[in-house]
Design a protein around this nucleic acid. Structure first.
Length: 510
RNA sequence: GGUCCGUUCGUCUAGGGGUUAGGACUCAUGGUUUUCAUCCAUGCAACAGGGGUUCGAUUCCCCUACGGACUACCA
């Protein structure tokens, strides 16, 4: 059993865009699988046809691909254990349901939804907080445990709608070892007779999940903490089906919480606080509602997954920047924390900034190209690359290089008012004019010479940097602050710099 | 309400019976820079509370408080 091949699955329900919490669950599964040379499967849990949202499955695959997780088996890539959509596995579940009924671990239920509601209302009125369909209440309901056998036969034969429930045993401790939480123990008296098979002929999550994990030979179930309360039911199901020996190991991940206040992270929080909660943009096909994603906001997939990996896990060292391969090498479930983690958007941006810096000017130039194009700007590649090299230290996103360095691609159309008000003095035009003449005569217009020229000019005129530089900068860039003016000027070239100064002098005068 | 899970700086976390309780993000200050950013340095800032066990508990145990998840013919 110890040398069992590691096979894990990520099993989302296609009811909408994949939430970043889901991406993290997928990531931990992926890291764990790859760490142990195992398989990462994607299974679509679409047993609830009423909640199916078109496009959601493609979205999951797209998001996983963007994040750099390769799916070994799944509907999109195939595999030997398919189909990988539960809706397509519908015929496979029935025999296991029947097996459970025959062994006395499950039974038919004929109660209508209305009767169920009435039962709950009645018990609530009698003072019961959360009425359950369990060993106590099932005796008063219509099911194959209370109805005469003949009646059950008759109802089934005439095609009355029915469901199948698990027959939860009385007063039994169900124990299992969670890789993250240790031993978890629950008494079956606190569990109810969960529906395993719905009247539409589809299994519920509980049954489908256990059957498919068994059939797909899943070795480890790594999923969100929201599943912890139903894990004992799953353990019981493995036992009832005679599969205890092949039961996967469980690991229940802590949740990602809201940055402020309490509760788990939701789409609402992102809207309210101004950050995406989805990996990529999503448009609800029914309402047309748009949700923004990290990809379109300009985050690098590596930065996004790196950030996600650290939300609940740490390597035990002080290293924080990890490539996917490094993550795979360092990952272990033992180092996943037990407590929920509040999402920190600042840290996400910090990760992106770190990733951006690792690119060369040339690489950044090609990343910047679409943004330039969108603004109808263009430049030689080597020029854009040089701009990126100069500007990358002050950018979090590639786009920042353009928004903060637009003057590299077109002459300023306006001049920063604050700087003009504070630094554009009466004598500024005369000074700039003189400086301009000096720059004109420079034989080599590079940063070093410009700097030297500037310095000697200041010395000759007995002026401080503050008397000349701000005016020079605002004339050329339109801004009050930024990268080294020597570098900027050299990049722009003599002709352009002189032209801009001249233009500023005519517009600003004084 | 019940069941289960959890609780170290504002946030992510390391640590673990004896530590000046460490790192990162954020924030503040100083240095570098013509300026801004970067970078460097420094600072602010935490073991939820109460009982045990122990020579000694932040660490182990119990209780309380607080937080979270679950409590559908949803996953």
């Amino acid at each position: 059993m110890e040398d069992r091949r590691v096979r894990v699955r990520f099993a989302p329900s296609p009811t909408g865009p994949l939430h970043m919490g889901g991406v993290r669950t997928a990531l931990y599964n992926y890291l764990f699988a790859k760490k142990h040379g195992g398989d990462f499967l994607l299974r679509i849990e679409d047993t609830d046809q009423t909640r199916y949202v078109p496009g959601a499955e493609d979205y999951v695959v797209d998001a996983l691909n963007w994040c750099g997780m390769t799916i070994d088996e799944g509907a999109s890539v195939g595999g030997e254990n398919g189909p990988y959509r539960q809706s397509e596995r519908k015929p496979m579940y029935r025999q296991y349901v029947e097996q459970l009924i025959e062994s006395g671990n499950a039974y038919y239920g004929f109660d209508t939804p209305e009767e169920l509601t009435m039962m709950r209302e009645r018990l609530k009125a009698a003072g019961m907080a959360a009425p359950q369909y369990n060993a106590v209440t099932r005796s008063g309901m219509q099911n194959s445990l209370t109805l005469p056998a003949a009646e059950v036969e008759k109802r089934l034969a005439q095609g009355d709608p029915y469901i199948v429930r698990v027959k939860m045993p009385r007063n039994e401790e169900v124990k299992f070892e969670d890789s993250i939480r240790g031993w978890v123990s629950v008494n079956t008296n606190n569990l109810d007779d969960k529906v395993l098979f719905k009247s539409d002929g589809m299994p519920t999550y509980h049954l489908a999940n256990v059957v498919d994990d068994y059939l797909m030979n899943i070795s480890h179930v790594i999923r969100g903490e929201e599943w912890l309360p139903s894990a004992p039911l799953h353990v019981l199901l493995y036992r009832f089906l005679g599969w205890s020996d092949l039961m996967p190991k469980f690991a229940h991940l802590p949740l990602i919480l809201r940055p402020d206040g309490n509760g788990k992270l939701s789409k609402r929080d992102g809207d309210r606080l101004g950050f995406p909660v989805f990996p990529a943009n999503w448009k609800n096909p029914e309402t047309g509602e748009q949700s923004s994603g990290y990809r379109e906001r300009g985050y690098y997939p590596g930065a996004f997954t790196n950030m996600l990996a650290f939300l609940g896990w740490n390597p035990g060292t002080t290293q924080e920047l990890f490539s996917m391969d490094e993550l795979i090498a360092a990952f272990s479930l033992e180092r996943v924390g037990k407590a929920g983690a509040k999402f920190d958007f600042d840290k996400t941006n910090w990760f992106n900034q770190q990733y951006l810096r690792m690119y060369s000017g040339v690489e950044l130039a090609s990343q910047l190209q679409p943004f330039l194009k969108a603004e109808n700007l263009s430049a030689e590649t080597h020029y854009t690359a040089a701009v990126c090299d100069l500007m990358k230290e002050r950018a979090t996103f590639v786009e920042d290089i353009l928004t903060e360095g637009r003057y590299f691609f077109e002459a300023p159309t306006s001049y920063d008012e604050k700087t003009i008000k504070k630094k554009w003095k009466e004598h500024t035009p005369a000074i700039l004019s003189e400086l301009s003449d000096l720059l004109k005569d420079l034989p080599t217009f590079d940063a070093e010479n410009i700097g030297a020229c500037f310095k000697s000019f200041l010395e000759a005129k007995a002026l401080g940097f503050g008397a000349v530089m701000p005016g020079f900068r605002v004339s050329v860039t339109g801004l009050g602050a930024g990268a080294s003016m020597n570098e900027i000027s050299a990049l722009l070239g003599k002709e352009e710099v002189l032209k801009r100064i001249e233009r500023a002098l005519t517009i600003l005068k004084k």
